[in-house]
Amino acid sequence: MSRAARRIVCVGSRFAPDDRAGPLVCDALRSAPLPGGVEVIDGGLGGLDLLRFVAGAERVVFVDAVRGFAPGKRVLLLSAAEASRGALPAYGHDGGLAYLLRALPNVLERPLPEVLVVGIEGEPDAESVARAAALSLSVATRGARRRASGQKREARGKAAR
């Protein structure tokens, strides 16, 4: 595994129509050159085993299909805490990403990496995949906090104009 400090880990199954958002975003990201220091990983159904991609990273963006977080929104950005709120009360074979996100603070060495989730609600289409790919790349490169403050500055600039 390379030492890239910023990783985009795409999660899901290509063979399940409502769970293939992650792999499709993975394909989209790999179809164009990536910025230096950003690595894209096809996490498949790795679940808890995706821990190895989080350890030692500066920032990790998971991309996955989501359901019930923001009705009406197709592509959204979630914190690890928000994304793991539906985690089962204990580990199971179906624990998946939600369990991993909730376990991270207990099993990782400090300092903890910044961990975010780009979610796609509903069956993915070309537009939502492209938006999710762009958002995950932006967050992986700049981080959620810097990205948010950048957007505020941009908004203030527009208002001043």
């Binding site: 199954s13 769970d19 299909a65 359901r67 019930g68 089962l88 179906d94």
Partner: peptide, 14 residues
């Protein structure tokens, strides 16, 4: 028990 992998979609509510 392991009834094969299924859809690993993150859910907001259970």
């Amino acid at each position: 028990a392991c009834l094969v992998c299924t859809v690993h979609t993150l859910e907001g509510r259970r």
